[in-house]
């Protein structure tokens, strides 16, 4: 049994990482194609470094992801609070239903609907329209991450705080928000992932002036392969890996700290 499990794990991780590693290996190819490794070289990294257009697009993508996730986290948290506080069942169900609409809609539908909306509003397609669309499809996931934390929250905490004379703003900032913080962070990271991973919606609502990495790669890939893209993916993979390791080390540290605290309490 153990052997089968190990085999399946190895197989799956091979499946998951083979294409990415393949990209990474060929970024060091001195030749110009993803076939027949001609020799090791940094030439594609130098090309990437001189390609200011591509670097600008990477920067755009990151700025877009951060801004849209921040806005989505704020509105999503407000939304979760609104759904949580609403007592009328019908209204609650309606809000939740509307929240989930964009979550279950295919990207193409969101893209098409937003293209119509933005044109109807007379907005010029560009950064603003893409930002609005990204905020829109990120909010539902933030709501879904925050809402369970609100429902798990001990209501007595809020009652105790207001009994002890805390104003509603204080209850919110000193009790509710700290309690639901893990949900808010999880929502933010999910929003970030969604935004960085999106292609279809952006493709619909972006104009000539603004492009994200996905859209740029799509148009370049249709013309053929360029190893600059490999170099860029390798750098991004490296960064993501460092982030994961950092996050893992951090979470291990905090859990062990929590554990010691508990032990002290037991003493």
């Amino acid at each position: 049994m153990k052997i089968i499990e190990r085999f399946w794990l190895a197989f799956c991780f091979f499946l998951l990482y083979a294409p990415i590693l393949f990209l990474a290996v060929y970024s060091f190819n001195s030749g110009d194609a993803m076939q027949g490794f001609a020799g090791f070289s940094w030439v594609h990294y130098q090309e990437l470094w001189q390609d200011t257009r591509l670097l600008q697009i990477v920067l755009n993508t990151l700025i877009l992801a951060l801004t849209s996730s921040l806005i989505a986290t704020a509105i999503g948290t407000i939304g979760a609070l609104a759904i949580y506080r609403t007592e009328r069942r019908l209204l609650k169900q309606t809000l939740l239903g509307l929240n989930n609409v964009l979550l279950v809609s295919p990207d193409v539908i969101i893209g098409a609907a937003f293209l119509i909306l933005m044109t109807a509003l007379g907005l010029k397609l560009g950064f603003l329209t893409v930002l609005l669309a990204h905020v829109a499809f990120s909010i539902p996931i933030v709501v879904l991450m925050v809402l369970p934390k609100l429902q798990e929250m001990n209501r007595d905490l809020v009652l105790a705080a207001s009994d002890l004379g805390a104003k509603p703003t204080e209850v919110l900032t000193k009790v509710t928000l700290p309690v639901i913080a893990p949900g808010i962070f999880a929502g933010f990271f999910m929003a970030l992932t969604y935004s960085l991973d999106d292609f279809a919606v952006t493709f619909f609502v972006t104009g000539n002036g603004f492009s994200t990495l996905a859209v740029e790669v799509y148009s370049r890939a249709r013309q053929g392969v360029s190893l600059e893209i490999n170099a860029l993916s390798t750098i991004m993979l490296g960064l993501a890996f460092v982030l994961v390791l950092g996050y893992y080390a951090y979470s291990q540290k905090t859990t062990s700290r929590k554990a010691t605290k508990l032990k002290e309490k037991v003493k």
Binding site: F13, L16, Y17, A18, P19, I20, F22, L23, Y26, M34, Q35, G36, T193, L196, D197, F199, L213, A214, V217, Y218, A221, V225, I229, L232, S233, M236, L237, A240, F241, L243, V244, Y247, Y248
Partner: peptide, 27 residues
């Protein structure tokens, strides 16, 4: 986390990797 990691690489980049892998003279 290692399973989730590939989702942080944009899906277009992953698709692009497959163009190289599956191509006529690909690996």
């Amino acid at each position: 986390l290692l399973v989730i990691l590939p989702t942080w690489i944009n899906l277009l980049l992953k698709t692009y990797a497959f163009i190289g892998l599956l191509g006529k003279d690909g690996l």
